[in-house]
Amino acid sequence: MIEELVKIDHQLFYAINSGCSNVFFDWIMPILRNKYTWIPLYIIIIAAAIKTYKLKGFYLVLFLAGAVGLADFGSASILKPTFNRTRPCNDVSVQANLISRVPCGSGKSFPSTHASDHFAVALFLITIFYKKWKVILPVGLFWAASICFAQVYVGVHFPIDVTFGMLFGSLVGFIFAKLFLKFIPFAV
């Protein structure tokens, strides 16, 4: 069962990493998965929350930071050392057919911390603001999913890594949003 799952994971990896290869993706995917690309967006979210909602906006930012912090810590410091899965770019069984588009790094692969962190942000904001802005659902999911896709495309994660990271981060973001709404009277 596990061997079959790993086989499917590798097939999906090659389909994305090699099969989707094109000049546009070669340019945009390393940018999408770069953590520094999104700093302006985070600054805008923080500034808009505090400007619009004052003290409640400050608490919103604290809860959002807590969600990202827990998603990041749980993924990078608890789950990755527990599962100890090698990144595709460091895995000798896939290196021959791998297209590496960014430096590999020495960290482990499962789960993807990029996926955990970005889905924590997305689900937190979707849960808080969906009633007011329905468009946040497809935009938030597309944004976070594109970063997950980029992680596979550039060769640093397998699809299962980003899928589990997505699920873990989504759960953390959703729980923190529900806690925020429970403890901070907030109406958008």
Rank of each mutant, 00 (worst) to 15 (best):
T52G: 01
L137N: 09
I44Y: 03
I78H: 12
T82W: 15
K54Q: 09
W27A: 04
Y36T: 10
F142K: 04
L125C: 15
G105P: 07
V68D: 02
N34W: 02
C89N: 11
F119R: 15
Y14V: 08
H10A: 06
K134S: 03
D117Y: 06
A145S: 15
N22S: 00
Y14N: 04
L55P: 01
P30M: 04
P138N: 07
F124Y: 03
K51W: 09
I16E: 05
A96F: 12
Y59R: 03
A115Y: 03
V135N: 12
V94Y: 02
F129G: 01
G74Y: 05
A15C: 01
F142R: 06
K56R: 07
F129R: 09
S112G: 02
S93L: 12
T52D: 01
R101Y: 10
S100E: 14
K54L: 00
L137E: 14
L79M: 14
D72R: 01
S18C: 11
N90F: 04
F110R: 02
S112H: 04
H10S: 10
S75Q: 11
F83W: 12
A115T: 06
K51E: 05
I31M: 05
G107T: 10
W143K: 09
G74R: 14
S18M: 12
I99Q: 09
S146D: 11
S75K: 14
G57M: 08
F110I: 10
I99H: 04
V23M: 10
L60V: 08
F142G: 12
A71D: 02
A76Y: 15
A71E: 05
L55I: 15
V92W: 11
Y36K: 11
G19T: 15
L55S: 14
Y14I: 08
A76M: 12
A15D: 06
G66A: 00
D72I: 13
V102C: 04
P88K: 05
P138C: 13
D72A: 14
S93K: 11
A115M: 09
K51T: 06
P30T: 05
Y130P: 00
A47R: 15
